[in-house]
Amino acid sequence: MSDKPRVQQDLAQELAELLLTITSIPSSLSFLKGFWITTVREWNGIDRLRMDKYYMLVRRFVNASFRLLIRAQWDNSALQNYTSILTSEGGPLCPTDIRVPAGLTFHLAEIYLEELEKAVSASDSPVLTPILGLLSPFISLAAHTPMNTTYKHLEESLFRPLLAGLRSRTSNPARASGHEYPIVLSNACADAPDAGSPMAPSTLREAMLQKLFAIASAEDTRDSNRRKMYALYKTALEEDEDYVG
């Protein structure tokens, strides 16, 4: 990629837009899979002084991926294929692939909801967004990663901000800040976008906590991660009790 910022931005956008130019959803997702496999494989060889342009490229692909899924009306098969791409070997959220660079995983966690907010906001009409389905790769990674730093980053960059945003919208919707993904959380459901109407923030928060608890309770969850996920669940319940009290 060129060192000129505008050229970098234009090229990154053009590459990501190929996901939407391809007319077949399965073919688009195959292209996306190739992007992630290549990115994971080559990431550690990128010159650190040029890393910002590749962070931008990843951001553009994440955004285009969401717009592709929105165009597919969050088709269940497409969504499952998408999450599988992220979590399978060669994907950026695969917990068993030692080639996955932590920096790439961290970056993806940091921008994920931000780019989802942008993609949903750009839609011509309100989009019912299956937020828990989209989060499932991160929850799975949190359960299975052997890296304490990875778990900590997922909790601090993704789970806690989202739970806080849902709680804020529950306790005082008028004061919910722009950093809490207002468009996404106003049009969110758990896993089934054909449900017809958005879930109330309190209901969605409860569903997210139940999903965290269920995956933490799974037999194949790492014991150390299970304890951390239980602690997150317990803290969130205590916050809810304090609010009700």
Rank of each mutant, 00 (worst) to 15 (best):
E14G: 15
S224P: 07
T23M: 14
T105A: 09
Y82C: 03
V62K: 04
R60A: 14
S157V: 15
K228W: 11
P26K: 09
C189G: 11
R227H: 12
A218R: 03
L135M: 12
S140F: 04
A214E: 07
T129I: 05
A16N: 14
M199N: 14
Q210Y: 06
Y54F: 10
S65L: 02
S168D: 09
R41F: 13
N44K: 09
I215D: 01
M51V: 06
L158E: 02
L113T: 01
A200S: 02
A12L: 07
R205Q: 06
P92F: 00
Q8S: 06
W36N: 08
A236S: 13
Y55T: 03
P173I: 06
L163Y: 00
W43A: 03
A176P: 08
V127W: 04
A72M: 07
I70L: 13
S2I: 11
F35Y: 07
A200W: 00
M208F: 12
R41T: 15
V7P: 02
A207H: 06
S27F: 09
Q9T: 05
A109D: 08
L113H: 00
E114P: 06
P193M: 15
L86I: 01
S186D: 11
F213R: 09
E156Q: 13
L11S: 14
N81L: 05
R71D: 14
L113Y: 00
D47C: 14
D194E: 13
E17T: 06
N148V: 14
V100H: 00
D3N: 14
I139E: 03
I183H: 04
L158T: 03
A78D: 01
D75M: 04
A12G: 08
R48I: 09
D47S: 15
E155R: 15
R227D: 13
P92C: 04
F35Q: 10
M56E: 10
L108A: 06
P201Q: 01
D97M: 10
Y243L: 15
A188Y: 00
I22T: 11
L185G: 00
E115N: 09
I183Q: 07
L11R: 12
A102R: 09
T23S: 15
K4D: 14
L104E: 08
P130E: 11
S157R: 15
A16C: 14
E241A: 09
E115C: 11
R167A: 02
C94E: 08
P95L: 01
L135C: 10
P201R: 01
I70Q: 12
Q8I: 08
N81Y: 01
